[in-house]
């Protein structure tokens, strides 16, 4: 069924190219030569996988290419990155990972064989809205009240990843209170500890949105660069005078040294798919929105985060 769909899409797209050459991205003649493989750094069925597959399907229809999605889970995108680094920089393989894959992993574990500078970045598709949240049964509703609470008793915060743990430590240093990061096996594990009242708060990327809408949780602080639509009253840490965010972009990358013409073509194709209506619908369902920072913007965000983690972790 999916095969016939892609054939039909390809047929449609080729008609479209013939009739309106401007519809598709501007690519050098003869590109792509054969199929394009999208290597996803996470397992099938997850959030990043869903985004990659949506973008791949849209690219197939829009550009008339054959885009095959293949999963390379492991080490937070590290397995995918290591494999991507060894590929020919001819645009036939695109990696899909997260900001932390290249901005944090290389400095967290010394044996990581790559840094963010080994890749070129086509752009992003989404930014995860991280927040610090707690259940409404707790005696604090704002960041100030939470810090006040922590001053007296210390506080435990369930986290789901190294970047979240580092942020908790930054907060503890900034406010001069005892904040204990309790590492969970993932977002669901941390959420469970928080809902059961076993910890005082949790950092979350997606699951907290429904809890806030249901009135079961409040967002104490937004861990993003800007405030988020579902909790407009929750200030960012940056506003509070602590320059700390968790960057959770879904990034599309290629090996360094890709031909500029091919790179421009892929970046344009990605942008067209990220800006498409179908993708916007998917983002709507995820309570998020499509964000493409573009090649330069993506590199800038990654470089900034990488510089921070490198110096922070070196000082440990």
């Amino acid at each position: 069924m999916t095969i016939t769909r892609s054939i039909a899409a390809a047929a449609l797209a080729s008609v479209a190219i013939a009739a309106h050459p401007a519809v598709a991205a501007e690519c050098p003649a003869g590109f792509p030569d054969g199929q394009i493989t999208m290597l996803v750094g996470y397992g099938a069925g997850g959030g990043t996988d869903a985004i990659a597959r949506a973008i791949a399907a849209d690219m197939e229809a829009r550009q008339g290419w054959t885009v095959v999605v293949d999963n390379r889970p492991g080490a937070g995108g590290g397995v995918m990155s290591a494999e991507l680094m060894g590929k020919e920089p001819d645009g036939s393989v695109i990696g899909v990972g997260a900001t932390g894959t290249v901005a944090l992993n290389p400095y967290e574990t010394k044996s990581t064989p790559f840094t963010y500078e080994d890749f070129d970045y086509l752009g992003t598709a989404m930014n995860i809205n991280y927040g610090l949240v707690s259940i409404t049964d707790k005696p604090y509703k704002t960041l100030a009240e939470f810090i006040e609470f922590a001053k007296a008793n210390g506080a435990t915060i369930a986290t789901g990843g190294k970047s979240q743990e580092i942020l908790v430590r930054q907060m503890a240093d900034h406010y001069g209170v005892e904040l204990i990061a309790v590492p969970g096996k993932g977002a669901a594990d941390s959420m469970q500890a928080a809902l059961g009242g076993h910890v005082d708060a949790t950092t979350q990327g997606t699951q907290h949105v429904q809890q806030i809408k249901a009135g079961a949780m409040v967002q104490l602080a937004s861990l993003t660069g800007e405030r988020v639509p579902y909790a407009p009253d929750s200030p960012t840490l940056v506003e509070e005078g602590l320059d700390a965010t968790i960057e959770g972009q879904t990034i599309f990358m290629v090996p360094k040294g890709t031909d500029p013409a091919v790179f421009a073509c892929l970046a344009q194709a990605l942008d067209e798919s990220v800006q498409s209506e179908g993708y916007a619908e998917l983002m709507d369902r995820l309570d998020n929105k499509a964000v493409n920072l573009g090649p330069d913007g993506t590199r800038a965000v990654i470089a900034k985060a990488a510089a921070f983690y490198q110096s922070y972790l070196a000082g440990e």
Partner: peptide, 13 residues
């Protein structure tokens, strides 16, 4: 993920 793709957010609501 299947729920979400079909526009349903699992959660307390």
């Amino acid at each position: 993920s299947a729920f979400i793709i079909h526009g349903i957010q699992p959660g307390p609501l």
